[in-house]
Amino acid sequence: MNVMQPFAWVGAATISQAAAAASGTVAEAMVKHTGAAGPEAVGILKAGGIDLLDLMKENLLAPARLVNLKAIPGLEDIVSEADGGLRIGSMVTLARLGEHPEVRSRYPALADAARGAASPQIRNVATLGGNLLQRPRCWYFRAQEYRCLRKGGEHCFAISGENQYHAIFANRPCAIVHASTAATALVALGAAAELADAHGAVQRLPLEEFFVSSQRDPQRENVLQAGQIMTAIRLPPLPAGTRMAHLKQGERDSFDWPLADVAVVLELADGLCRRAAVILGAAAPVPHRAKAAEQVLLGKAITEQIALQAGQAALEGATPLGKNSYKLPLFEAMVRRARARALARG
């Protein structure tokens, strides 16, 4: 039943210990060592471990060491910042994130995304950092038998294969969708990732720039480098009059990956929309910014009619595959509903 290969356990007490004990990212290890027991060199960082253990049990990854991040102080903190923003440690669980009073009151789209992810049992263990860094759920990628493009092979099996859960935007050369619903909300909110290295240097990167399109590099979902650790996510302060919502649609209500998810953040002043973010999840290999929909909303009073137009505009540039064009009307409706939900929240 459990086919995890043996590995050593490294308990790191500091970021630099952890960074030194890890050899690189999961993406690098999977391209180099898919399906085979990794050499002694491979050490992987472990947060909640939900995705990591899944990959290891499926024999997609066999590190010689797991480096535990849970004993490093400070990574579980949620702290208000001087600029009015919020800094969320990467090891905060999805359960805590979804229940945190300040997250719920000031960034409800993020709280909803966290509360809608996975199951209660998983949310009590899975971390925000792990959720953002999880590998895609594409069934070809998850099956050891398919050496797909993302695992260092030559071919994306989904593009002409079973692609009902795959991308409708930017789906060449690899058609995965990004698996994180928290990412959809965070990109809409303009969040930034903090990436620390063994020498104490901290890079701060807008989350939107953190994710990597499949055209840019089909073997990774983000720019995280060997020796870097995601330590926190920073949420910017939002002006009064900002409205937001995150909606997820699965095949069933309970515990499922999204067919589609949408985050909308609207800044309103004098009845007009001053800033609009419309981000589609489970739509592309990265959280997908629906720029045309944002353009429709900007400068307007957000009426039903404008929301209808925004929903249609959100589909601009879509290149659906053989079995996933059902996602087009789904996203169109969800953009409309997310706008309605955001405004109803007041």
Binding site: P6, F7, A8, W9, V10, G11, A12, A13, Q17, A18, A20, A21, A64, R65, V67, A71
Partner: peptide, 13 residues
């Protein structure tokens, strides 16, 4: 983990 000093603790496999 005072007794371990600066070194990470390694256990197993």
């Amino acid at each position: 983990v005072t007794e371990q000093g600066r070194e990470a603790v390694r256990l197993g496999p």
